[in-house]
Design a protein around this nucleic acid. Sequence first.
DNA 1: CTGTTAGCGCATTCAG
DNA 2: CTGAATGCGCTAACAG
Lengths: 340, 340
Amino acid sequence: MSDKITIKDIAKKSGVSISTVSRVINKTYPVRKEVAEKVQQTIQELNYTPDLMAKSLKTGKTSTIGLIIPDISNPFFASLVKGAESYLSKKGYSLIICNSNQDMKEETRLINILLSKKIDGLLFTGSANHNKFLQEKVIDMLPVVFMDRAFVKTNGSYVLSDSYNGMLDLLNYMYGANHRSYIYISGNKDTLSAGERTKAFSDFVKEKKIEKYRIYQAQYDYESGYKAIKAMDCGKGYDAVICGNDLIAYGVIEALKNSGVNVPYNISVTGYDDIMFSRMFSPSLTTVRQPIYDIGSKSAEKLLKIIENNKKIKNGIILKNELVIRESTMIRSDCSRQKD
Amino acid sequence: MSDKITIKDIAKKSGVSISTVSRVINKTYPVRKEVAEKVQQTIQELNYTPDLMAKSLKTGKTSTIGLIIPDISNPFFASLVKGAESYLSKKGYSLIICNSNQDMKEETRLINILLSKKIDGLLFTGSANHNKFLQEKVIDMLPVVFMDRAFVKTNGSYVLSDSYNGMLDLLNYMYGANHRSYIYISGNKDTLSAGERTKAFSDFVKEKKIEKYRIYQAQYDYESGYKAIKAMDCGKGYDAVICGNDLIAYGVIEALKNSGVNVPYNISVTGYDDIMFSRMFSPSLTTVRQPIYDIGSKSAEKLLKIIENNKKIKNGIILKNELVIRESTMIRSDCSRQKD
DNA sequence: CTGTTAGCGCATTCAG
DNA sequence: CTGAATGCGCTAACAG
């Protein structure tokens, strides 16, 4: 009997019309106090909850945000999601999470599903620069905020951290610590972050007139780092390995350990991101801290602002990064250099 | 103009009624081939996508699953979610993710929101045993599968891994490796997994007639492990520290490192879960591997089965665990024991 | 302040 | 096989 109780039931039982009930629930118009109380009471009695689905059909708003990331099991994205979810939840929004596994076709499929479900907005981290569908259609039929990655050429909204200067700070520190030859292992090259960091590296070697360096194209994961350094004779002859992110650095260090190369004594290794484990890693990782959680929460904040103001304030926020020096690097002297 | 295109538009443009369109979309009834083709064609032309929201209002099914976990930024839960999401996505379902932060009040709030949004089912990891609301109401008005944690006394559906035997295997191994005195650091005691593991430990010390042991109540996180071992004089005088999960073990090892205690030479430390970082940790962690991803995907599979068969097959799946021996433990000889 | 009414977009009887 | 009509539960004019 307590089955499917609707606004109608509580209207009847309260002796008012359904619109009055709607009004006391949504506080859209004034209702006589006694009536309001009576209604509230029967709502309690019947344990009624409005059907948000029906409400959404009418209003066109679902209070639901879609979020697309490559992989939730990557701690970087997990923090991003946490930041977004925590903000959204506080504001009464829910989050539908989708893993794209870096696959553009899958991204497109997911976006279409999300669109059909009538989300109010989209938080996106993926292959933005190449996804024509997103770039040409989605972006102006739905509020979208790009997290961590962004269109370079389009005027979408985004929240990033300043990878270029973060990497430059790191490199300048390494230079000051007497490192003169570098291997640079880049993450997925179609991402903005990898582009910025690589650019910083290129500018750095040019400015400091570094002669011995090498850029290796890899992916943002552990295995990729492991393979990369193995493919480069375990960095023999170089002072430092600069990695595109922490996961790559983990892989590099593990490979080096396995080959009997000591980090940092034989060679220094750096990461990027400062995910939770980097301080527990052994040696603890010298890296650049990105405010990952904040990127997530600021993205959510920005998205809600766009949704609620219903205006297209297309712009971005760029958060600062912070150099974190730990045990995986050391101040080099000539005698601590590897021989060729 | 290409604004808000509905089933009506495509009906008009195809020269048929909306019911016919609905039929070709859902293939619920046969439609003349030519007509069907014509309709399909104009669907393409107008780039029409059915409004899932409206559909849901009618059918009562949303193809959306709610998921509640304590904290997505914990790698354990991230893997769980990945497993569930990946299965659900393949089956055409979406996932709404909510972080409860272990707060029962928050859990209840989230469940109510999810209920209002008309999810088709719920995947739950949280304080099941104490949440009356969940236990008494939700569980029989909505398909629910408990992941990793479960009601001990209720006949709900669940997917777990066998913590009791996993822990027992680990302890027996340690005994075989000549460890004779133990500190046991438990995770959140209101969870089933902690209960099972602690029970295994209790049974173990009884059976092996271990005289020197200590059980310490903590939480399933890094800080908790760090503090716990500090509070116990860095385990002085004990052969091994058995931790409720890997995160606790990380904290313990870090604290020990900071105090100059060598793991495993002075004392062995074990974890539980085998999250991704445990093999990269230094020393790499001896632990018990839970099939976390599988717990997630099996839970999702079970939930969909319940939803689609619409029957209440309340039962559980218990997956096996596997001992993983790494560097944080060693085979002890008398001279490698710490003095009291 | 309050009740009546008309849809939101779609699936589904019920007649053809 | 197909069209017309009904209503899912709710909000938002529109009249009182």
